[in-house]
């Protein structure tokens, strides 16, 4: 079996644990400590930011333009509108600055 297969299987097990684990573990406690809850709330934004920030730093004007458009559309639209606008801006900008 290749490494990729093992990554997929381990990732699937890890994901299933998160989906069943909250019920199995957290339901045993009366309430979660506020600081733990605050930490849990911060997880998605903290992880996802690390995937954007270094990419922004290494990118050029076309990519920056796309990210700015994405951020602007996010004030009004949903994830799909945001993503499509950012992608359109990226494709358009790359025609000019490569």
């Amino acid at each position: 079996m290749s490494t990729t297969f093992w990554i997929i299987i381990a990732g699937a097990v890890a994901t299933y644990l998160t989906r069943v684990g909250g019920h199995l573990v957290i339901s045993r406690f009366e309430n979660i400590h506020p600081r733990v809850e605050a930490g849990l709330n911060a997880v998605p934004a903290a992880v996802l930011t690390t995937l954007v920030a270094p990419a922004v730093l290494g990118a050029g004007p076309a990519e920056w333009a796309a990210l700015i458009v994405t951020a602007l559309v996010s004030l009004r639209g949903g994830l799909m509108a945001m993503f499509l606008a950012g992608t359109a801006a990226l494709i358009l900008a790359r025609q000019f600055v490569g």
Partner: peptide, 15 residues
């Protein structure tokens, strides 16, 4: 680990 981290929010849904 990163897949686990991104999916960690499901713990709250699960509960």
């Amino acid at each position: 680990l990163s897949i686990f981290a991104v999916n960690f929010r499901h713990v709250l849904y699960s509960a």
